[in-house]
Every structure is written in C-alpha cells, then in structure tokens.
Design a protein around this nucleic acid. Sequence first.
DNA 1: ACAATAGTGTCTTTCAGACATTATCCG
DNA 2: CGGATAATGTCTGAAAGACACTATTGT
Lengths: 237, 237
Amino acid sequence: MKKVYKASCKEEEKFLEQYDSKAFDPIALSVDAVVLGVMKSETDNYRKLDKQILRVLLVKREEYPYKGFYSLPGGFVGKCETMEDTLSRTLEAKTGLKKIYSEQLYTFGEVNRDPRMRIVSCAYISLLDEGKTQVSGAKWFDLNEIEQMRLAFDHKEIINEALKRLRGKINYTNIVFHMMPQQFTISELQEVYEIILGEKLLAPAFRRTIAGKIVDTGKMTGNAGHRPSRLFKALEM
Amino acid sequence: MKKVYKASCKEEEKFLEQYDSKAFDPIALSVDAVVLGVMKSETDNYRKLDKQILRVLLVKREEYPYKGFYSLPGGFVGKCETMEDTLSRTLEAKTGLKKIYSEQLYTFGEVNRDPRMRIVSCAYISLLDEGKTQVSGAKWFDLNEIEQMRLAFDHKEIINEALKRLRGKINYTNIVFHMMPQQFTISELQEVYEIILGEKLLAPAFRRTIAGKIVDTGKMTGNAGHRPSRLFKALEM
DNA sequence: ACAATAGTGTCTTTCAGACATTATCCG
DNA sequence: CGGATAATGTCTGAAAGACACTATTGT
C-alpha cells in the first residue's frame, strides 16, 4: 500500500513546501503493548497435567512519573516510523521479544493520562505461546495479581480492554492459535479457552466446534501416567 | 475517570517541571469520522415501499493537498481536547451534526498518508438515522458511487474498514439501532440488515432472531396501499 | 487395580433455513 | 378483486447442551 504523493500543480507544490509542521499543538504519540502469554505452572502431583495460566508482561519504570511502578512495554512513535515499527522496536528493546503476533487494540487519549504532557497512546495486543515466553528486562504477572497492584498511567484499564477484546474475538476468529505452540492437545486448547472465557466448557461440544479448525498431526503425547493424547496443529490462519 | 496526578516527591515534581514537551518528533494527531446514514429514496410506484440506501457523508476539501477532492470530515486534535471532543467539534463545524452516536474504529498511521507532514488519524464511526440526515457543508454519497471516486488521503480505505466493522458487529451487538429512527417496522429493520450485510434474509428467521431486541409500540403504519405494519422501538441499548 | 486424562455415543433441546400460507390494507 | 406488504405456521436439519460411557496409559 505504499503510495508516493505527487503534487498536482505548482501552486500545490508551493503550499506543501511552506507548510509549517510545528504550527500544531505538540501531542506525543506512543504505542503500548499488552503482551499476553499462556504458561504452564507445575502441579504437585506428577500424574496431573500442568495448569495453564494467562499472564501479562510488564516492565518496571526507571524514571518519573510512576517511577518504580510497573507499566506496559511501549515507547514514543518516531517521526518516520509506523506504529507497528514502534511496537516491534520497543518490544525488542524492553522485553527481548521479536516477531510477535500483534494487532491494534484501541487508542487512549484522555487529556491527563500522562502528567508530563499530552500523550495519546495507541495500544496493541500481542500474543505469545509458551515457547516464546523467555524475556529479558520484563516480568510476567498473573492477571489476579495485577488486580491488586497499582500500575502506571491508565495501563490497568488498557489491560482490561485487551482481555475484553480477546474474550470477544476468541469465538469467531482463530486468534487463540497465536497463543498455542505448534502442536497441542485438544485439552490444552480447551483450557486456554476456559482461561480466557472464565468458564468451564463441556468437552464433547468443544471438540465438535473446533474440529474444523485443527488438523491431527499423527503424533501423540506420552509418558504422562495416563492415556496419551493426540497432538493437533492449527489449520490455516 | 478523571484523575489528577500528584507528584510523589520533590524530585518528581522537579522532573515534571523541567520536562521538555518539544523534545519529541512532531506528529500531528487528527480525527476522522466515517458518518454513515440510512436514507429512503422514493420509488416510482406509490404503493411500493421506499428503498433504503446506505450513504457516507463527505466534505469537499478547500485547500491543498487533495484540493477539490472529497474527504471524511475531521480535524486536528487540540492540546487539551480528547479525541471525542475533536470529533464533536469538527463534526458540528463541517456538517452541522450534533450529538451523534460514535465509536472508535481504528487508528491509521502510515508514514506518508498525508503529504504535508506526519499525521496519524484516529478514525471513528458515526451512525445516524433518517431523522438526522439534514446536513450543511457536507454531501451524502452512495457507497457504490464512492467506489468509482478518488478520495483524499487514505479515506477510501478508512471507509472500507468502517463497513467491515459494521458488518462484523451487526450480528452480535445492538449497533444497528443507532441507524434506526425511534420507531420502525420490522421490514425496515430487516432492510437495513440486508444493506449492511449485502445479502437477502428470510423474514421468519429474521423476526425470530431480533424478537428479543425490540418492543412493540402498539402503533401501526397506515395509508400505504397495503397491509399496515406494527411499529417497534429498540429495547435497552 | 487405580488414578488420571482422552475420547466417543447419544439423547435432548434449541435454533436456523426454507417454503407455504394467511392477513390486511387501498384503490 | 388485485396488487402490495405484513405476519405466522411448520417441517427439516444442523448444531449446542448435557450426561454417561468407554479407552489407554504409568505406577
């Protein structure tokens, strides 16, 4: 979708040359990422399956304002950078993550959301699977844990919007597969649905409804102290 | 959600005082509105119902760039203005419309979308019913008509996103009632669904599915050369 | 055998699709 | 009556909810 604009006449050319881009009120634009990942937490009983948990990735602020508080990873949009560029750049710088699935969430523009100056933030949702949850400079938090914390700026509100969006989209898109590893069992997939939706689902109905979205890899899990499970992969995303 | 930020200590207070808000690259933030309305176009036969049409409201640009082309109504976000404030202000200034239902659509940030300078635009969808389609300084366009036109900036792309969003939301929200007058017949409502979804629907199924979202007003249409129709209103939005 | 998870069978209920039918107005 | 739209009846088939049941592993 690159298109280079070409002035239609001399008059327009002149107009564009003389245009003063400093004439507008200084509003800074930033990008913040709600990085969500599903992780396994080991259980006491070796025969039981690991419970999966939904976590958010936060970074501790080193500077005022909200120094010492945790915040979403993000940063200012450079003059010649798309917001997606800013997202990749700041995610890599602050968390070490590269090439993560992301989509735009919402743009937050309350006038006093940042005490320094007027900053409008375009928030993104980024989704990870268990295999990519190794990070540097950032820390994973349980969602319940976050409820009790005070976060920087309006970042708690942004996280809540992200969860709402995820819940809304899980049933009519294939977004969930961005949180799954290459291969997974149906039970694991169901558990991720349950975590996101916040309710238990019935296995037979679940299997029926997702049957069209997954493919059997032919492989099986094993060595688990119980019946092995088929491994599936996502079908066309 | 107003909250006034209070510096936690002298050190932070000093930091905030000395903060140079001009240090960042100048990126202008604008708001653009995709104003959609359903209008009736009179038919040849007096006994036939008026056909409804979905239209978009555009304004002709008076200045470069894209002078003379049609564009979405919008404008720059002022320093002490929320984006919703900007939306109301520019909508009223450029179209005369006040207090229109609007929701944020998407934020468009391609680097060269505006030849003047870097301008990021937060787009909104605004919906009108037939009763509010009187405008000044702006013009309504059929959607097919727009397909053939060249619009300013990336505004055609923005309109297409708006339609996609509308189509996506119509089936699991009550958004459609923002395009309906206070009272309407089920046939009118069905026609709006058909326009937005781009397909014919079967009347019995349609009636069943929307039955829970509307209330009978007890009133009827009349004098139409055919059987009168019940008038309904939207239930809780 | 037992604990634990994987996976299927099937009955019921709910709901969408499809088409036919009846109802009511106006001229 | 005839043209037009409004509204309902009902059959069918697909899909969701619910629950019981069978299957397979490691210890």
